[in-house]
Design a protein around this nucleic acid. Structure first.
Lengths: 104, 104
DNA sequence: TCGATACATAAGCAGATACTTATATGATTC
DNA sequence: GAATCATATAAGTATCTGCTTATGTATCGA
């Protein structure tokens, strides 16, 4: 769940696509795979990477394993981003203020 | 300047360290290299990656090339993050609202 | 214009990554 | 308990990545 794991996990377009699909609603690995040109082991491996990055979490339900977005990963990215708020353009002033709230 | 470029650039710890150093204030490649166990070509290559990701921008000043954080890259990440605000924990409610502002 | 300085590019290479096929594990149904 | 289904793991491989050394380019000062 390091920053390394996080950004590395998101560096792959297939994994971002998987994550995006999961963000629309939790589902198991098989359903997740529908419509994606990817083998079953590849999906399993990607999910494992996303999981150890803290972006996704799983829950076994009988034969199936249900996956959902893990807020921890997103929170970690937000915290990383907030470190650089001094470098943000003025346009996003509102975001600056919001991130300030987050500190507390 | 794609999401691919962005996350891939940030996936490397050395590049994140460079970016972090630049966030503290703009400087040229030589100064940037001070204290980092990294060769001159390696630094140049990392800066090139950060640049084409939109995270950093350069400005030649005589013999030196000054580098600074490019807000575009950070903004892009913030926008990517904002896509998933539905998945954020309630704790970060304030951030949700702030990101909402950003949409307009 | 010659040497030095700051940086970029080229080429090569070791290690990492994302995929594949094959097989194992775990759970359900008959 | 045997067959089946959902998923994970193993092992192999082509490609990518980040580094190195060597060299090129641009700017400066003497």
């Amino acid at each position: 769940m390091s920053e390394d794991d996080l950004f590395r996990a998101l560096a792959d377009p297939t994994r971002r696509a998987i994550f995006e699909k999961l963000a629309a609603g939790s589902m198991n690995a098989s359903v997740l795979r529908e419509g994606m040109a990817i083998s079953q082991p590849a999906m399993s491996q990607h999910l494992s990477v996303l999981r150890s990055a803290g972006l996704v979490r799983e829950e076994r339900q009988g034969r199936f394993v249900n996956y959902e977005v893990d807020p921890d990963g997103l929170t970690h990215i937000a915290q990383w981003l907030s470190k650089y708020r001094a470098s943000w353009p003025a346009r996003i002033d509102a975001l600056k203020a919001l991130l300030k709230d987050m500190d507390q």
